[in-house]
């Protein structure tokens, strides 16, 4: 009996030690909530990201990253940023996120009343921004909405039925469908333990179950023109004042082709022009930065420098570009 107790106690202590270690070296989640108007969002609390970069994020009571704010404060000009993990930016510190960079640039130019709200949520896609995005806008009443897009939004997330919102095609018609799947009762509890978050991550890595259904098929569309045009039309219809920023994926080892726009980016640029949606593709800025400094805007020292999420350089340049885009559009 004593022998088995010793075994159990030793195992328990080892698990406890790893829980503590993992919360700092792997990460910690605050858990998730499914809300009727916002879909699945990060629960208020602390998120530690350590697998890629290292940063501590605080999710406030409005389910957005950053300090608490008063929703009734009418003196603020609010810019709502809808996006995925690139916007949430859990890999970098709060001050480094492009939302804070833009906000501080406005403040530096005498517009300290401009508040840029980081509503980025992990794993979201275009259909989410167009559906639940309206829920965010109705709730937070922004003067301007910025939608952040990236390659995965169109190559894997667009039609992915595993997302809480996705695009459905019937004939030539595209429409948004919401995923009726209910959140597991345990989903709110389990992700809080780092050891379980890590185990889930390993399971997904080994089985590929974390990848979107369309990514597994590996059949990239031959044209994005229809999807891009539809998205811009819907964005314009959903939000009276909207802009789109695109964070490209870059192959820094092919420096000569860094400035060449892939098919998707051409389609998005043309669609934005046709629909009159202010649009910024970060490719030229990121390419120029790499030409000048040899430092990629993607990746971190603890992962692959050059791939993955954007790093501090990427956020700074995106923040500056967003400021340049919004400055003429927001009244002082």
């Amino acid at each position: 009996m004593a022998k088995w107790l010793r075994v159990i106690a030793a195992f328990g202590l080892a698990v406890l030690c790893w829980e503590v270690i993992l919360s700092f070296v792997s990460g910690r989640s605050s858990g998730y909530l499914k809300l009727a108007n916002l879909g699945v969002v990060a629960r208020p609390g602390t998120i530690i990201e350590a697998r890629e970069g290292f940063a501590v994020s605080h999710i406030n009571s409005h389910y957005t990253r950053g300090a608490e704010f008063d929703i009734e404060d009418k003196s603020k000009q609010r810019v709502l940023v809808l996006g995925d993990s690139y916007s949430m930016a859990a890999q970098v510190s709060e001050e480094e996120t492009f939302e804070r960079v833009t906000e501080s640039l406005f403040a530096g130019h005498g517009q300290s009343n401009v508040q840029v709200i980081n509503a980025g949520q992990f794993g979201k896609g275009p259909a989410y921004y167009l559906s639940y995005g309206k829920g965010w806008a109705d709730w937070l009443q922004p003067q301007f909405v910025v939608i952040q897009l990236n390659e995965g939004d169109f190559t894997s997330d667009f039609y992915d039925k595993g997302k809480d919102a996705y695009v459905k095609r019937s004939g030539n018609e595209l429409s948004i469908a919401l995923n009726p799947k209910k959140q597991s009762r345990f989903a709110n509890l389990l992700p809080r333990l780092s050891i379980l978050t890590r185990a889930e991550y390993i399971w997904q890595e080994h089985t590929g179950s974390g990848k979107p259904a369309s990514a597994k098929k590996k059949t990239p569309p031959s044209s994005f023109a229809e999807e891009a045009r539809w998205f811009m039309q819907q964005a314009k219809a959903a939000f009276p004042h909207v802009a789109v920023v695109y964070v490209p994926t870059m192959d820094y080892h092919n420096e000569e082709t860094l400035n060449e726009l892939p098919l998707l980016e051409v389609s998005l640029r043309e669609a934005a022009q046709a629909e009159g949606v202010p649009y910024v593709d970060m490719r030229p800025q990121y390419a120029q930065h790499y030409h000048e400094t040899k430092q990629p805007c993607h990746g971190f020292n603890n992962t692959h420098l050059g791939s993955g999420h954007i790093n501090g350089y990427g956020h700074r340049l995106l923040g500056e570009a967003l400021y340049a885009l919004l400055n003429p559009l927001l009244k002082p």
Binding site: R6, V7, A9, A10, F11, L13, A14, V15, C17, W18, L22, S26, I195, R198, A199, I202, E205, H206
Partner: peptide, 21 residues
């Protein structure tokens, strides 16, 4: 001993949780 068992479990968990995919 307790220490030996703890080390064994700690290492096994390290292999399980920390090995590259």
């Amino acid at each position: 001993t307790f220490g030996g068992l703890f080390c064994l479990f700690f290492i096994l968990l390290a292999l399980l949780l920390w090995s590259p995919s």
